[in-house]
Structures are given as structure tokens and as C-alpha cells.
Design a protein around this nucleic acid. Structure first.
Lengths: 194, 194
DNA sequence: ATGACCTTACTGAACGTTTGTTAGGTATCT
DNA sequence: AGATACCTAACAAACGTTCAGTAAGGTCAT
């Protein structure tokens, strides 16, 4: 792995942990065992380093779900598998998830557009297509958003949810969350088509 | 309004915008038209100022939904009203919402516990109770989470969602979002009890 | 009523540290 | 010789924090 890549992947982790202004160039330099000036040899300034780190983190997240869409099973089964894969990815790659949360918080319009069109569009379209298949007379965009929203919320708010009454350890298990969301959605679709 | 309150309410807005390390004491002092030392007269240091600001922001959010729970209508209608109120509050008090997002990102266990038990527990319990009423054989905690998760996601991810294909301006209207979520959930409940 | 005294709310200036960034120099490899 | 990858050392600016001082307001004995 080249120094530049080492810097980028360390930056992803640290920016995700501490945020843009929370991470100093010296801390990053220390983490990759280089001098500060060495970082400035590879990147013109902190801001473009951050942008490149974000782009780097998002670069290989596109084709994770190919096995889901490729499999030839029922639409219901596809939804179930997508939800499960989505939760797994988000739980696995925690840094990616937190970096994304920070980007959403920042909500810079230009970067939002880049993120949407450059990274997630194809997945979102496939999900909308699946939604249309399952509930033809409903708004596909709203439905696709609901699917992702349900899954994302369970993961993002885990640290808070565990302090609410009625919480059980199983509420943090991917298969339990996935099963709950899937049945919730499929039940809803069943009612609308009936 | 006292100087202390003026500092706190300005801090809420600015911490929500820039994050903890993104806001300097000098910037805050400038915003409230006081000297930096004046702030230190009211608060021992930046960290406790932040904590007090968070507590201040969350302090009067408890009894917003009293009219929802107080009204004597069907459980379905109550769910519909709660979702609508929840979305309205989150859209209205944007600073509160962003500050909460930042707190979740930080995910400090002690503060999560404080937030959960001190601020949101009663609302969450009422929502769980409603969920049990609507779908007795399902996990109330998971259901309550789903309700909030659906609503929150639509608001948090608005800046991103608008760049996906199939987006329409109406997807940002509170009544449209609320209606979609409500029917989605009620349909699901209908299927499970049938 | 007045001067002494304490508290409260603030100010300007400074403390030492950390920040992003750069200049100049040194190896290593083509 | 020139490009590449790195270093140490320094820069000004901004950072959180503190200190000494001041002006205003209330309290209280005289």
C-alpha cells in the first residue's frame, strides 16, 4: 500500500471518529508515522484531503449488493436479502457509516449531489424497481426511502435505543432487525395489494 | 433574557451548525456581543458550556406531544397524529434536530443514558403502549423504533434524497411524508392482526 | 444621606498551546 | 540531472483559558 493510500485510509477512520475540525494534520501524521510535510506533499491542503478521503471511502461500495440483485428468487426474498445485506454492510464498515452520517450533517448541496449520483443512484433505482414490483400503486421513491430509513435508523440509534425500557440484547442482532423490518414491510405490501 | 440564556441559545445554534470543535469561544462571544472572558464568567470551560447547551436544548421538548396522547380518539388516529407532530417538530426546530444528530454521532454512553432516560423515555413508553394496542403480538420496542426511524430518516436525509431519481417536491411536504408512513404502518398492522 | 464594603457582570490584554501551512534541505531512484 | 518522497524547523494565526481591573448595584453601620 502506497503512502498516499495509507494516509487516505487512516484519514477515513479518524475523520469518521473526530470530524473534520476535530482531526489535526499532526494527529493524522502521527497515525500514519509520517511527518506533516509528507502529507502536504501528497495533498495540497486539509480540505482536499478530506474530500479525497470521502471519495475513497465511497469508491468501492457500489457493487456490494450485486449478489442480491443477481439472484433469481422472488421479489419478497430479494427484499429480505437486500435488507439483511444492507444492515450487515453498515454494521461491518462502521467508519464508512459514520463518515456518511457526518456528510449528511454537513449537507453541502454539491457534495450531496455527488454522493447521490456518483455512489448510490444505481442501488436506489434497483430498490425502487423492487418496490414497484411489490406495491405497484404506491410511490416507489417513498417506499425505497422507507426501506433504507428503517434499516439505517436501527443502526445509527443503537447507542441510544439500548437505554429505553423494553430493550433486549437481541434488538442489536442483525438477523432480528432484518426480520422485523422485512415482515413489517411485506405485511404492509400484502395489505395494499389485497 | 439574561446573558447566560443568550449565550446558551446562541451556543445551541452554533454547536448544531459547526460541531463542538468547529465553534470557538471567540466566535460565540462575537455572536452574543460579549467578551470571551464574560462567557468564562458564566461557564467554567467549553465542555461544560456545551453540555449545558445540550441540556438546555432538550429541556422543553418533553411536553410537545401531550395534546396527541391526551386526545381521546382511536389508536390509529393517535398514531397518525403522533407521526405528524413528530415530523413537524423536527422540521421546525432544526437546530435541536442537528444537535441531537451530533450527540448520536458522538455516542458517549453516559450522555446517551442521560438523553434517553431524562428526555425521551416517557414519549417512547407511550409510543410502545400505542404499538402494543395496534399490534399486540409484535415486539413493542422494535415497532416504536420503526415509527421514529421512518420519520427521522425522511427528515435527516432530505438533502440527499432530492438528488435521487423519482424525487418530487411533495416528498418534502410534512403531510405527504406523514401520510405515507402512517399508511405503511397501519397496513402492516392490519395484515398481522388479520 | 453617606461612605465602606461585598457581590455580580463584565472588559482588555495576555498566557502558553495547537492549528494549518510552508520554506529549505536531504536522501533515493530513474 | 531531475523527479519523487520525505525530513526538520519554522511561520502567523487561532485556540482555550486566565488574570487584573472596572463599573454598577445592593447592604449596612454610622
Amino acid at each position: 500500500m502506497s503512502s498516499k493510500e495509507k494516509i487516505l485510509s487512516a484519514a477515513i477512520v479518524l475523520f469518521a471518529q473526530k470530524g473534520y475540525s476535530g482531526l489535526s494534520m499532526r494527529q493524522l501524521a502521527l497515525a500514519v508515522d509520517l511527518s506533516v510535510a509528507a502529507i502536504y506533499h501528497h495533498f495540497p491542503d486539509k480540505n482536499t484531503l478530506y474530500l479525497e478521503a470521502v471519495r475513497f471511502a465511497f469508491s468501492d461500495k457500489e457493487q456490494v449488493f450485486d449478489q442480491v440483485w443477481g439472484s433469481d428468487c422472488s421479489a419478497e426474498e430479494k427484499l429480505s436479502r437486500f435488507i439483511r445485506s444492507f444492515i450487515d454492510v453498515m454494521l461491518e464498515d462502521h467508519d464508512f457509516h459514520r463518515l456518511m452520517q457526518r456528510e449528511i450533517l454537513e449537507a453541502d448541496p454539491e457534495r450531496m449531489q455527488l454522493l447521490a449520483q456518483g455512489v448510490f443512484t444505481s442501488q436506489f433505482c434497483l430498490l425502487m424497481q423492487l418496490a414497484t414490483e411489490l406495491a405497484p400503486e404506491q410511490d416507489a421513491h417513498l417506499l425505497a426511502t422507507s426501506v433504507i430509513g428503517l434499516a439505517k435508523y436501527y443502526i445509527e440509534y443503537q447507542p441510544l435505543l439500548k437505554y429505553f425500557p423494553g430493550w433486549k440484547p437481541e434488538h442489536e442482532m442483525p438477523e432480528v432487525i432484518a426480520a422485523h423490518i422485512t415482515t413489517l414491510l411485506l405485511n404492509s405490501f400484502k395489505a395494499t395489494t389485497a
